[in-house]
Design a protein around this nucleic acid. Structure first.
Length: 493
RNA sequence: CGGGAUGUAGUUCAGUCCGGUAGAAUACCUGGUUUGGGACCAGGGGGUCGCAGGUUCGAAUCCUGUCAUCCCGACCA
């Protein structure tokens, strides 16, 4: 079925609805017939695939290998690490039976009560437990370390309020799980992966992120430290785009993973885990899109250049086809992904709107006028500017233009975020700024109580203690007690 | 699980207050004319009005129950 295009609701009405509409109209995904799940459509999946490919390369460059662990986890595994079970138990899907049968009254299929599992199985909400019970068998000596594994998988969390890409019940992600002989090495690994994620976000997604450390209340269940990258959406909310956890020896102790070190002493191994998910798609959509639809960074766009012919007769089309064939070939030779859309059942205006809503970075239009003049019309999606250029040397111009667009949307998103990030010293000011959708840098006395009160009163949470920021002492914006440094507050998705 | 709203054609929705043969736009199909920013004309197909009861001569409309979805919270990659 052809895409239905009626233009997007203007963002001012309701950002959430606007976002949903955009995801559906840009043909990225749709709601699945299962609560909280989504169908990722081919166009959306192509973007994820590209992200997958780039990240996977980065992981391998940093010495990691891929592996795969089971979807189902025995219930007892989850209860071994106390904080972990606390963090995940309330949102797990549970497998209780292994067989169906036909109902005796012919009303359809029912769960066979005779096929009840002795121990229920949990559909993984994350794989720390199953992986650590496996690592126990792999690790005996310091010579077995480090173990640097990643897995690409789906996980399931029975979220109360799902949103396309941002929080679905089932989502795709990668989770790295590493085991190390020393604390220092594990901490370095966790920090390194945070940097890998930040680099990917900024260079590939054109998404500015703030690197930081989570406060105790916000960190991953079972971790000693959680390193995060946080981005800003256009409605001023924070989105946690990736996390890297230093797990200390918690999981090693829970799963009894010990090794013999160089001095022949037994010790528990040190661990990290880190992941990014299809939520990155949500971050991408929310960071760059406008009321004409999606704006994709050229480096991740499944179609980087679309060419639309304009013609009246079959002869005209044949002539244009011939001219375009050469252009397509030359662009492809430069590694650019090109689509020539000469479908006859859609008019040019329809195609223009369609590729705009899908965020294709560059559009080339070629008609009889251009054929005669040796020109073509080039439009860039980020600014919607059109220019007529000579055919000669167009390939180099397009290559440069793609780079310009990549850089421009990054700078635009960066400026947008920086304008909306403010330092605040009074609680009144704090409340006003949070209400206006700002990222607020404020002093905090370091207590969970203050954090909880601020959250209750303003819905703002501590997104992170930003890294690489000068740590100037001050007074807590809420209690006036001494504070070592400013931390980042915002409302979040 | 709390607060609000909505279930009618593939989709978006009107009709519900005030009961009387099921509507529009769009999408889809056929034919023709079009094609430099979401084409036009003519014709056509498509809905047991979420589900189950009840009231009534008669229910999309009123009543009761139920299920589902969406938005706002709590939860979260």
């Amino acid at each position: 079925m052809a895409t239905e295009l009626k233009g997007l609701t203007k963002r001012s009405e309701n950002y959430s609805q606007w976002y949903n509409e955009l995801v559906v109209k840009a043909d990225l995904a749709e709601q699945a017939p299962v609560r909280g799940c989504m169908v990722i459509k081919p166009y959306g999946y192509a973007i994820w695939e590209k992200m997958h490919e780039v990240l996977d390369r980065k992981f391998k460059e940093t010495g990691h290998q891929n592996a795969y662990f089971p979807l189902l986890i025995p219930k007892s595994y989850l209860s071994r690490e106390a904080e972990h079970v606390e963090g995940f138990a309330k949102e797990c899907a549970v497998v209780t039976h292994y067989r169906l049968k036909n109902a005796e009254d012919g009303s359809g299929v029912i769960v066979d009560p005779a096929a009840k599992l002795e121990e229920e199985l949990i559909i993984r909400p994350t794989s720390e437990t199953i992986i650590w019970s496996t690592y126990k068998n792999w690790i005996k000596s310091y010579r077995d370390l480090p173990i640097l594994c990643n897995q690409w998988a789906n996980v399931m969390r029975w979220e109360m309020r799902p949103r396309l890409f941002l929080r679905t019940a089932e989502f795709l992600w990668q989770e790295g799980h590493t085991a190390h002989a020393t604390r220092e090495e594990a901490e370095a690994e966790a920090k390194k992966m945070q940097t890998v994620y930040a680099d990917f976000a900024e260079k590939w997604m054109a998404l500015p992120v703030i690197k930081g450390v989570k406060s105790e209340t916000e960190r991953f269940a079972g971790a000693l430290d959680t390193y995060t990258i946080e981005s800003m959406t256009q409605d001023g909310k924070a989105l946690q785009c990736g996390t890297s956890h230093f797990l200390g020896q918690n999981f090693a102790k829970a799963f009894d993973v010990q090794f013999v070190d160089k001095d022949n002493k037994l010790d528990y191994v040190w661990a990290t885990s880190w992941g990014v998910s299809t939520r990155l798609m949500g971050a991408l959509i929310m960071a760059h899109s406008d009321d004409n639809g999606l704006v994709l960074p050229p480096k991740l766009a499944p179609i980087q250049v679309v060419i639309v012919p304009i013609y009246k007769s079959d002869e005209d089309l044949a002539a244009i086809n011939e001219r375009v064939a050469g252009i397509v070939e030359n662009l492809q030779a430069k590694g650019i992904s090109v689509k020539y859309d000469n479908a006859e059942n859609k008019r040019p205006g329809f195609k223009f709107a369609d590729y705009e809503i899908k965020g294709v970075p560059v559009r080339i239009v070629l008609g009889m006028r251009d054929l005669q003049n040796g020109t073509l019309e080039v439009m860039r999606r980020d600014t919607l500017e059109k220019e007529t250029l000579p055919l000669e040397g167009i390939e180099d111009r397009v290559v440069n233009l793609l780079d310009e667009i990549q850089e421009n949307i990054y700078q635009k998103a960066l400026a947008y975020r920086n304008e909306r990030m403010v330092e605040v010293d009074t609680y009144d000011d704090f409340k006003t700024q949070i209400e206006n959708g700002r990222f607020v840098l404020a002093h905090w006395d370091g207590t969970a109580e203050t954090e909880a009160k601020i959250k209750e009163e303003t819905k703002a949470t501590i997104r992170c203690l930003p890294l690489g920021m000068e740590e100037v002492p001050g007074k807590c914006v809420y209690t006036g007690k001494p504070s070592a440094r400013r931390v980042l507050f915002a409302r979040s998705y």
